[in-house]
Write a protein that binds this DNA or RNA. Structure first.
Lengths: 116, 116
DNA sequence: GTTGAGTGCAACCAAAGGTTGCGAAAGGTT
DNA sequence: AACCTTTCGCAACCTTTGGTTGCACTCAAC
């Protein structure tokens, strides 16, 4: 019945800061906790925790470079996440359409049976 | 740059329990806190809090019926939420495609310049 | 009126997101 | 080599959020 989604993956992209982080990594290429925190309204440590969450679900992965850690989006995993978004969306969309269709059918029946 | 989404709306559907609740309301029609809690792994009070959240962002609305409160999905608002899901999804999708295209272009250039 | 189902409110707990503070490691400068 | 700066990770702490239990209230039905 209900749409099957990976809750871990979904809740990873459920956070607005994490969504923006993914946006930034996609738009500007690989980045570090420090570079991301400069473009976000939270501290580096908060960003670091978010990076850990995204890393844990595999949406991004880190590449140590000297004293820095460059994070970058895992394209395949993000594609999976996108697929889940559209899956939930289209399921709800389909249900909305079905409900509307049924409602219209009932309305038609009522109008025919009882006149106006 | 980043996709404009209503954070309130998004975080409302970000919770797995709330997403399932919407699923149930769509599939079975209007329901109460008690009826929903019977089909969910949490207590009625937890469901009640989630209903309050969904109500606050307008995704559902309640209709008092005797001693019960029947909640039902606000179709227009849910349609808005679905639109946002697909907006974020298609933005990421587009960026992934762009990155892939650029990567391929670079690969082609490299192969042409340096031979094999 | 009493009993039962459905609600709402309050107190309490645990996990998540955020902050500050500090110490360690890598890179650049003198 | 010694020093300073940048970046990072860890620990302590606070607040919000999702969850629970317990209790009092309302409405329907007997």
């Amino acid at each position: 019945m209900s749409v099957v989604v990976d809750d871990e993956l979904w809740s990873a992209i459920g956070d607005p800061i994490r969504r923006t982080m993914i946006d930034l990594l996609l738009a500007d290429g690989p980045g570090t906790a420090t570079s991301l925190s400069r473009r976000l309204p939270v501290t580096r440590q908060a960003v670091s925790k978010h990076l850990a969450v995204l890393d844990r679900v595999g949406l991004i992965h880190a590449e140590p470079a000297g004293r820095e850690r460059h994070y970058q989006v895992d394209e395949a995993q993000l594609a999976r996440a996108v697929a889940q978004l559209s899956a939930v969306g289209s399921t709800w969309d389909a249900r909305l359409r079905r409900i509307k269709r049924i409602a219209e059918a009932i309305e038609r029946t009522r109008t025919n049976d009882e006149g106006d």
